[in-house]
Amino acid sequence: MEEEFEGGIVKKFMFVNRKAPYGTVYALEVLEMVLISAAFDQDVHVAFLDDGVYQIKKGQDTKDLGHKNFSPTYRALEGYDIEKLFVERESLEERGLSEADLLVDVEVVSRAEMAKLMGEMDVVMTA
């Protein structure tokens, strides 16, 4: 799965988001990790499953929480050349959501396809 690239090794990374935003700091921490990973020219994949799909739900408004709304940042990922975003269909359906509820372009895949993708990665980070 590894290939030499400009003297460095390119690995397949997947960051897997399983938690809703705001209740814990995991979603924001993973997002920062993803942004930083872009600097290392790796093959970065980002997955959203289970409650992680809520991270990219449209219409988030955190004003009353006094907490920064970081959902617009997912739309900046494209500019960081991170374009491999995957969302699990079953996770959306269980929560009564559809692709139209998401604020960023993603590829919706089945649980089985997600499992297969995970198996193809060199490194998987889940939180």
Partner: peptide
């Protein structure tokens, strides 16, 4: 628009 300060590479692009 994005709620972050872009990395230099991203800003340049």
């Amino acid at each position: 628009e994005y709620q972050i300060a872009p990395a230099v590479r991203v800003l340049t692009k």
